[in-house]
Design a protein around this nucleic acid. Structure first.
Lengths: 238, 238
DNA sequence: AGATCATTTGCGGGTTCCCGCAAGCGGACT
DNA sequence: AGTCCGCTTGCGGGAACCCGCAAATGATCT
C-alpha cells in the first residue's frame, strides 16, 4: 500500500511517518510533499490511494488539493490533520468529499494513539473518522441559533472581500433587498447587536467580518480563495 | 544559565531543546511552558534570564508575555521563534522591547545552523538578531509608499474592530475629518483604489480590513488584542 | 381551492461613509 | 517678517448602508 504525506512542517511530517508505519504495517511505500500543488502531482503520478494531509500550506491548501485529488480518483482515502478546527475548513471539506469516500479530520493535538487509530481506520479500513473537538465545533456551528445556511455563507464571503450590496445582488441573483435581509440575519447570528449592551454604534459590516474571523467561521485562507472565485466570476459575467 | 522555552508544539519544543544544548553548552537548566501565561509565571518564579518563545499561542501570545516579562526584568534576553513574519508581530515587538535588551526574531523555516547561531548570539552574547526574511518584510513595510505610520496604524486597528468614525475620533482625540483623512491614506496605502482598475465599486472599509489581513499587516490575534484594548479604554473613558 | 407561514421584493427615510474644497494653524527656511 | 508647505478641521453633498413596513410570491398542508 502506498501512502502520501502532504505536510509542510518537517517535524510533523516525520512524526506522522513514524506513527503511520506503526499503525499500518501494510504500508509499502511512503511519499512526501510539502504543499498542495506538489501533493496533487505526486498523487497523480504515483497512483496514490491513501493520503494524510495538513490543511494550511503555502500554494494550494489541503482542501483545494483534496478537491483535485478526489476529482481524479474519488475513492482515495484522505486523512486531514490540522492545527485548527475552523468552520471554514469544515465547510470546505463537507462540500468536496465524494459521496462514498473515506476521510477523516483530526487535530494535531490528538494523542499519538488517537492518531494511529485514525490512520488505520481511514487509510486502511476506509472508515470515516472525525475528531471529538471537530465534532463539537460542527455541532455548535449547526445549532439553529448560530448556524449559517449556505446562502448566508455565500453572502458572508462576498461581504468579506468587500463587495457592495448591489454587486452581491447581481452575483448571487437576488434583489438588493434580499441581500440586505441576508446581512441582517448574518449580523444577528454573528451576534452583532447587543454586543456591548449599550448604544455602542458599530460599523456592522466590518464588525461582521471581524466576528467571523475571531469565531473561526472564516479564516484568512478563505478570504484569499473567495477572492479568487470572485475574480473568476468577474471574467465570465456578461 | 537557566533558559525557558515557551512553545505549544511539543515537536518544536524538543527540537528547540536539542539545538539549544548544542549551541549553548553553558545552559544548566531548561524550563518549559506551553503558553504565554505559564511562561510569564515560570520566568518570574524561576528567575529566568533567557527565553525562547513562540509567538502564536493560546491564552496570552508571545508578545504579551514578553511585555510582562520585560516589565519585570528588562534585561531578559528573548528569542522569538515564529512561523510567520507578520507585520503585526513586528510592530508589537518593536513597541515593547526595552531600550537595551537583547532579543531576536527568527522564523521556524530557518536552518538548524541559523537557529543555533541565533540562540547563542541572543541568549548568551546578548546580541540582536533578526532573520533575513523578517528584515525583508520590515523593509517593505517601511517603504515610504506602503508604510503605515503609527497614527494610521491605530486607526486601522479601530476600523478593524468595527468602530465608526465618530468613535475613533473620540478615542484618538482627533476631529472626525482627520480620522477620515487617515482612512483615505490607509485606503491608498493598502492599495484599494485601482484594485480592479475600472469602476468596480467596493466597500472600502471592509476591503481595508481584508487587505490588511491578506498582506499580513494584521492577523487575527491582533484583532483580538485590539478588541481587549478597546474594552479597557471603554471602561476608563468618562 | 383555500388558508397559513416564510421568503422575497419595493419603498422610504434616517445614518454613516467618502471625499472635494477651502479656510485655519504651525513649523521651517530665507 | 514673510513665504512656503503640510496637516488639521469644518462644510456640504452624493452614495452606500441599515432597516421598518407592507405588498407580492411561493411552498406546504388540509
Amino acid at each position: 500500500m502506498k501512502v502520501l504525506i502532504v505536510e509542510d512542517d518537517q517535524f510533523h511530517a516525520s512524526y506522522l511517518e513514524d506513527a503511520l508505519v506503526e499503525a499500518v504495517p501494510e504500508v509499502t511505500q511512503i511519499f512526501h510533499a510539502t504543499n498542495g500543488e506538489e501533493g496533487e502531482k505526486t498523487a497523480r503520478t504515483a497512483q496514490i490511494g491513501a493520503v494524510v494531509m495538513d490543511l494550511q500550506m503555502e500554494k494550494r491548501n489541503g482542501i483545494e488539493a483534496a478537491r483535485t485529488i478526489w476529482s481524479e480518483r474519488p475513492q482515495t482515502r484522505i486523512l486531514f490533520w490540522s492545527n485548527y478546527a475552523d468552520e471554514a475548513y469544515l465547510r470546505g471539506i463537507a462540500s468536496t468529499v465524494p459521496a462514498d469516500s473515506a476521510y477523516g479530520y483530526l487535530l494535531k493535538t490528538a494523542s499519538r494513539d488517537r492518531l494511529k487509530l485514525a490512520l488505520r481506520a481511514v487509510l486502511f479500513e476506509e472508515q470515516i473518522v472525525v475528531d471529538r473537538e471537530v465534532r463539537r465545533l460542527q455541532n455548535r456551528a449547526q445549532a439553529p441559533r448560530t448556524a449559517l445556511d449556505d446562502s448566508e455563507y455565500e453572502v458572508l464571503l462576498d461581504l468579506a472581500i468587500g463587495l457592495q450590496d448591489k454587486l452581491i445582488a447581481e452575483r448571487r441573483g437576488m434583489s438588493l433587498r434580499t441581500v440586505q435581509n441576508r446581512l441582517l440575519s448574518l449580523y444577528d447570528k454573528l451576534g452583532i447587536e447587543g454586543e456591548a449592551e449599550e448604544v455602542l454604534p458599530l460599523n456592522k459590516r466590518v464588525r461582521a467580518l471581524n466576528r467571523a474571523l475571531v469565531t473561526r467561521t472564516l479564516n484568512i485562507e478563505t478570504l484569499e480563495s473567495a477572492q479568487r472565485d470572485f475574480e473568476r466570476w468577474l471574467i465570465h459575467r456578461r
